[in-house]
């Protein structure tokens, strides 16, 4: 069986090419795969499409990648008040942005994970989010068509991983991580703790191993702000 556990952060991201579409878990400072992000920065990949709720906290989280101009397009719901590197690149038109309502961001990724070709929603009807989208009336309500968001990679922050890739998350650091883990071709999890197969109670598994392709152990990093 192919081994999922990697011994180094640089090795686990070594094949991420320029131009890749990458999902990054995390919300408001909790649950960001900061060690994996730093490894991507060291690797120096370019022209990444990033899918993430936020766009960094100063030099933390995705801020580091914007600082080094590695991201060309972002799909996000709330770039954030401390995403200064993103805002500078955005103002200079070095990065483009698709703003998506937060729950719709979740569902578009979940649609990709679930093999669905899209869905209709009332969210965003009559707003600039609806621009260019098909609109129809269902059950008497105006709805717009939202399409799935796929990715080549998902970078996930977990609390515990077993060697098979079953994951648990700590408190509200769960946020986007389980959804993104299901939606990408290759899911890479950085976990605080790596434990033997069988040591996570099956009913406590939050992301089943089938969704996780690579695991690396790393002590989590938080950025204040």
């Amino acid at each position: 069986m192919k081994k999922k556990v990697y011994s180094s952060l640089d090795e686990v991201v070594a094949d991420v090419p320029d131009g890749a579409r990458v999902m990054f878990g995390g919300f408001g400072g909790a649950g960001f795969p900061n060690n994996l992000i730093q490894a991507l920065v060291r690797k120096g990949v370019k022209n990444i499409t990033a899918i993430s709720n936020n766009c960094g906290t100063r030099d933390g989280e995705l801020g580091l990648m914007f600082k080094h101009n590695q991201i060309k397009h972002v799909i996000a719901s709330f770039p954030g008040p401390h995403a200064n590197h993103f805002q500078e690149r955005f103002a200079a038109r070095e990065v483009t942005l698709e703003l998506v309502p937060q729950g719709i961001l979740c569902e578009r990724m979940r649609a990709a994970a679930a093999g669905l070709q899209g869905f209709y929603t009332t969210v965003g009807v009559g707003t600039e989010v609806a621009d260019g989208k098909e609109e129809r009336v269902l059950d008497g309500k105006r709805c717009i068509l939202e399409m799935p968001i796929h990715a080549d990679y998902a970078f996930i922050k977990a609390q515990k991983a077993d060697e098979l890739g079953n994951l648990t998350y700590r408190l509200a650091a769960r946020n986007f991580n389980p959804i993104m883990a299901m939606a990408a071709n290759t899911t890479i999890a950085e976990a605080e703790e790596l434990v033997p197969v069988g040591s996570i109670n099956p009913v406590h598994v939050m992301t089943p191993a089938i969704f996780v392709h690579r695991i690396v152990q790393a002590k989590g990093l938080h950025y204040a702000g």
């Binding site: 709330f78 309502p101 937060q102 729950g103």
Partner: peptide, 14 residues
Amino acid sequence: KGSGGIGGAMDIAA
């Protein structure tokens, strides 16, 4: 100035 951000507001409003 800047990108603005929607966050959860549109889902909540709907």
